[in-house]
Amino acid sequence: MDVVNSILQNDIQKKNTHKSTVVNKDTEIETDLGTLLALDYNALNLKALKYKASSIIFILKSQPEEYLRSLTRDNVQILINKIWELPVERVDEVIVAKLPKQEFILPRARQIPKARPLTKWQQFAKEKGIKRKNKPKVKWDEELQKWIPTFGYKRNKAIKQKKWLIEINNKSKAAENPIADAKAAKEERKSKNELQRLRNIAKAKNIKIPKVGLPTKEHFADSQQLSQAMTIARASTASLGKFQNRLPKEKDAKGIAKQVPGMKRKAEEVPRNLQEEKKRNTNLADNVLKSNTKILREDFSVPK
């Protein structure tokens, strides 16, 4: 009987060319069935991975290829073994296993996107705690006796139906065209919005833009600079500021007569006699000695 059994087993082994489903590993393979992932921490056989001179000719059947293929088969086998351990059911002659939830956390491929910088209004609203109210999409209009959309399609038409005539209450405004006014006002609002949009983009991308509005301290460090700028600006018209109005008590800045056309320079005081000239010269010499801006002098004391 033993002989018969051994022969039968041999026969089975011959028929069964497939490898066994049992795989032995030095260290257990980590698997995550949710993502169908297997992680093999075993050391690679580096010798087997090296190409040999003789094996280069038959690349397909070379040793490293064979080794990698067998390694992969083993690992996949383990994964499939684990799947077979799950509860299995048969749906339309197909065996189906339900995979559990994924445990392995895949690292993110891309950078986490940065939060979009807030616009000026969003910033303000955040500070003040203003929350956006969701407006209804349509509103009931008593006059037209129908639903009017708050924006978009068919809105404009409804408004035109509603405002086909505009009353003028004020007689003084009779000459003006209210429809054109409204149109202009709308254009104004549109361009203001556009300006704000662009300003928000510039702010987000850190681009410097020229300032508008009244000059601030950034423009002028002190009042003298401001008055100089004002004097020059007044003279910068085609008629050299002849028709520019002055503020009450406004005076021209001093010491810029050279730059400003049409501004009269104060004539230098001419000394009347030699004594006076001498006095002026000594004063000037004192000033020169005091100011060490132009001359390099380490060891100088002002003689007094």
């Binding site: 000594t282 010499a285 004192d286 020169v288 000695l289 132009k294 001359i295 100088f300 004391s301 003689p303």
Partner: peptide
């Protein structure tokens, strides 16, 4: 005077 004082402060 600036030029002269560069030589000596006593030029005054």
């Amino acid at each position: 005077l600036e030029k002269l004082t560069n030589i000596g402060t006593n030029v005054k």
